[in-house]
Amino acid sequence: MAAKAKHVTKSTGEPKMPRTSVSFPPELYATLERIAKEKKVSVAWVVREAAEKYVGDQWPLFVGKGQGG
């Protein structure tokens, strides 16, 4: 499998963050919204944090990849 080329934003020169769409059961989404409100962040931030923790638990050597770590 070939690696995809990194796309860079014109304004910052930083790599673009890939986007995706995810559907959640209503109860789970309500919980994510509640967590986001308590932390004063977006639901997207909560989901990214959860995904990073999940990947770190599954593949410990992957922790910090792509985030300057």
Score class of each variant (00 low, 15 high):
17 M>R: 08
38 E>G: 12
25 P>S: 15
21 S>D: 14
20 T>M: 15
37 K>H: 11
21 S>A: 13
11 S>Q: 14
39 K>N: 15
10 K>I: 01
33 E>N: 13
29 Y>V: 03
44 A>Y: 03
23 S>A: 11
42 S>R: 09
45 W>V: 06
54 Y>I: 00
40 K>C: 06
17 M>K: 05
39 K>C: 14
13 G>K: 10
56 G>W: 00
17 M>D: 08
9 T>I: 07
17 M>T: 12
48 R>T: 05
56 G>P: 00
33 E>T: 11
18 P>Q: 06
53 K>S: 08
23 S>W: 09
46 V>L: 09
24 F>K: 01
58 Q>R: 01
10 K>E: 08
27 E>V: 09
25 P>Y: 08
42 S>V: 06
45 W>N: 11
36 A>L: 07
41 V>T: 14
33 E>P: 02
28 L>T: 12
53 K>N: 11
34 R>H: 14
47 V>C: 04
16 K>M: 07
57 D>H: 03
38 E>M: 14
39 K>A: 15
49 E>H: 05
29 Y>C: 04
10 K>P: 00
11 S>I: 14
37 K>C: 14
15 P>E: 05
32 L>P: 01
38 E>D: 13
46 V>Y: 01
53 K>W: 06
47 V>R: 00
34 R>N: 14
28 L>M: 15
58 Q>K: 02
19 R>L: 03
37 K>L: 14
32 L>V: 09
45 W>Q: 10
45 W>A: 09
40 K>Y: 09
36 A>E: 03
41 V>D: 13
34 R>L: 15
41 V>Q: 13
43 V>S: 04
18 P>W: 02
25 P>V: 11
27 E>M: 11
44 A>C: 10
53 K>I: 05
29 Y>E: 10
34 R>I: 10
